[in-house]
């Protein structure tokens, strides 16, 4: 046998390709028995399929002519698409009339028609944004070309003028030009939404992104203990903290006492655990806590003594 399975497959494919304009079900019907027929032909004699049956295209032409198969005017899936489009258009017209009174007009279209020049303006701006975005790979709310806002301004004016001009002209177009116009408009809206979303995202990160997170806001939960140093860099024991209303500020928890096995008693004096102080008793000026020693000449004493007098009396302000 000189004919391979691949040759049969190729022949079938070419016949089917030559019948591609027929409705799918007709084409399937016509070529359904072809593979086994070709297998029988192949089994019977020598020579290639094309030698014995002629070119697949000729085979297809004969099959089509004898079967009297007519090509469908449009492929079936386009029929369904067109059907869905008509249905959607009908629904839209209905909505147009129903929602019109809400806006104080007979139809929504009546309400929207005078607003068209405004849309042309916005359309020009969006188009300029997209052009700037395509050139620069990024865009702000004002189009820039290579970071240059004056060429960006020219681009903006040009795009708006073109959009206005097109707006006046496009009212009368029909057929495929109209469809192209609609597709382009949809694409413009989609792209500009993406570009604007990007702009918005960057605006967000620009305002906050460059600051490091500190323990200033919503971070009190990370504070375990509070250490207060006096001017000489001595640790103040049993310090009390109050806010502007005289309400004691409670921060952290006495973790060292909890570790020791004792039940921690909640006090409002800091530090809970003086032995865990981040800065030890300063022996020399060089290791004094820098932020707390306002003058370099200050020489702290070697031992930090607890001073109860360091705790201020709460005073309520009206």
């Amino acid at each position: 046998m000189t004919v391979t399975g691949q040759e049969i497959t190729d022949y079938v494919d070419r016949v089917r390709a030559a019948l591609a304009d027929l409705p799918p079900e007709v084409r399937d019907e016509l070529t359904e028995e072809l593979p086994e027929h070709l297998a029988e032909v192949a089994a019977e004699g020598e020579g290639t399929l094309v030698d014995r049956l002629g070119a697949p295209e000729a085979y297809a032409a004969e099959l089509r002519a004898v079967a009297g198969a007519q090509p469908s005017r449009r492929p079936a899936r386009f029929h369904r698409l067109a059907e869905a489009r008509r249905e959607a258009a009908t629904q839209l017209r209905l909505l147009d009339r129903q929602l019109g009174p809400v806006l104080g007009h007979e139809t929504v279209s009546d309400f929207l028609r005078p607003l068209r020049p405004a849309w042309w303006l916005v359309r020009g701006w969006l188009a300029a944004l997209i052009v700037a975005w395509m050139v620069d790979g990024r865009s702000g709310l004002v189009p820039r070309l290579d970071g240059n806002s004056s060429t960006g301004l020219l681009l903006l004016i040009g795009a708006i003028v073109a959009s206005m001009w097109w707006g006046r002209r496009s009212a009368g177009i029909t057929g495929w030009r109209r469809q192209l116009h609609q597709i382009a408009t949809a694409a413009l809206l989609l792209f500009s939404f993406a570009v604007l979303a990007q702009v918005d995202e960057r605006a967000d990160t620009d305002s906050y992104g460059s600051y490091e997170q500190t323990s200033v806001d919503h971070r009190y939960d990370r504070i375990e203990d509070v250490f207060v140093y006096d001017q000489q860099g001595r640790l103040i024991r049993d310090a009390r903290l109050f806010d502007q209303n005289g309400v004691p500020i409670r921060l952290g928890w006495p973790s060292c006492m909890a570790d020791a096995g004792a039940v921690p008693e909640m006090r409002n004096t800091y530090p809970y655990c003086p032995e865990l102080a981040p800065f030890g008793p300063p022996a020399s000026p060089s290791i004094a806590p820098p932020a707390l020693a306002p003058t370099g000449s200050a020489t702290p004493t070697g031992n930090a003594t607890p001073t109860t007098s360091a705790s201020p009396e709460p005073t309520s302000t009206p």
Partner: peptide
Amino acid sequence: GYGYDILRRLREAGLAEVGDASVYGTLRR
């Protein structure tokens, strides 16, 4: 008969020039 079988019968009957595609097209019609 099936397609190839029908084609063979036609050829055996003397219609040697009948084309393969013509038979299948006729059967479909």
